[in-house]
Amino acid sequence: MTAPLDVSGSASEAPPESVLEGGGKIAGRSLGQIAWSRLKRDKVAMAGAGIVILLILMAIFAPAIVAVLGHPPQEFHEDLTDPNTGVPLGAFGGMSWEYLFGLEPRNGRDLFSRVVYGARISLLIAFLATLVSVLLGTLAGVVAGYFGGWVDTLIGRTMDVFLAFPLLVFAIALVGAIPDTAFGLTGDSLRIALLVFIIGFFNWPYIGRIIRGQTLSLREREFVDAARSLGARWPHIIFRELLPNLIAPILIYATLLIPSNILFESALSFLGVGVRPPTPTWGGMLADAVRFFTLPHFAIFPGMAIFITVLSFNLFGDGLRDAFDPRTR
């Protein structure tokens, strides 16, 4: 017969703290802390985040960077180009320690400086357009998902109309029809405002559908029923109960929407309906490079700037999605 076990002084009778190694207490972690611990282990996503931060800093401190490593982006150096062909003198498009990316054909402007300043326009338009899309899409999605019924039907059909709209054709027609001065704005300010409006206002249905689906599942959860039972009205439930639980999908989709907006702005600038020259933009520089196909450096550097920016945001967005919801892997 097996002798009875002596349970006196065993772990089953000890306080929970003594079971832990070192006698410490278990500290609770928020969703953000758990997601951050997962994100830190994703080296690819962290590398993308690092490049994104560097790009943002490059756009903010563009004047200081150009003052140290380049020349003013609008400064001509025609004496460094061939007077007959306009080709920059020297090897590889005039690349040197003084002109890191070489020179533009004909006018001899510093290509490095223009690429650095081009980041300002692309990132500014992308961030502002994403902000507009996120605000409109989140509001419409939460309202449609929470109220349902005819409100959901009305907002849903409005989303379908916007999704079926020929956005590129509309952008070309609208930007081309607006005069140089309108709405109290002029020049680059007017063009940037128009691009932000077009890209942001017509892209909100994408995030709106995602937020609507998330809201449909959240509105049946116990904490929402508890808030209703305590007499909470719909503004409190939407802004204090639902929106805090929608931060993760909103943040994830925003990081994935930014590169799409960068590509769209570059496409509009490439087609000549974006920010007008001589203001440097990556898409506009690619459009100018088409005429000088024998000078690959003229297209490689702005093209690589777009490629690296979009890739970095996508890698960071994928890592952020996996960190907040590892089941999507």
Rank of each mutant, 00 (worst) to 15 (best):
A49E: 07
D82S: 07
G231S: 07
W150G: 01
L154H: 00
L195D: 06
G70W: 04
F301Y: 14
M304R: 02
P15T: 13
A182S: 14
T153K: 12
L111W: 04
R209G: 13
A299W: 03
P244A: 05
A254K: 00
E104P: 03
H71Y: 08
G70V: 07
F239C: 04
R29L: 15
A177L: 14
R106A: 10
A47Q: 12
A323R: 02
G32I: 15
L268Y: 02
L246M: 08
I247G: 04
D318N: 11
D152M: 05
P278E: 08
L124P: 03
R276W: 00
P179T: 13
E75M: 10
N245S: 06
V273I: 09
A305W: 02
L271H: 04
V275A: 00
M304D: 04
L89K: 10
V44G: 12
D318V: 04
E104K: 10
G23K: 14
T281E: 03
I250N: 09
V68L: 12
K40W: 14
A119S: 15
A226I: 08
G319N: 06
A47H: 11
R212M: 08
S122W: 01
R221E: 14
S18E: 15
V310I: 12
R109C: 11
G24N: 15
P179S: 13
I252M: 02
D79E: 11
A140T: 14
L263N: 00
D110M: 09
I26A: 15
G137V: 06
G319F: 00
W234H: 09
H71I: 01
E78S: 09
R109W: 08
I252F: 00
G141M: 05
D180C: 00
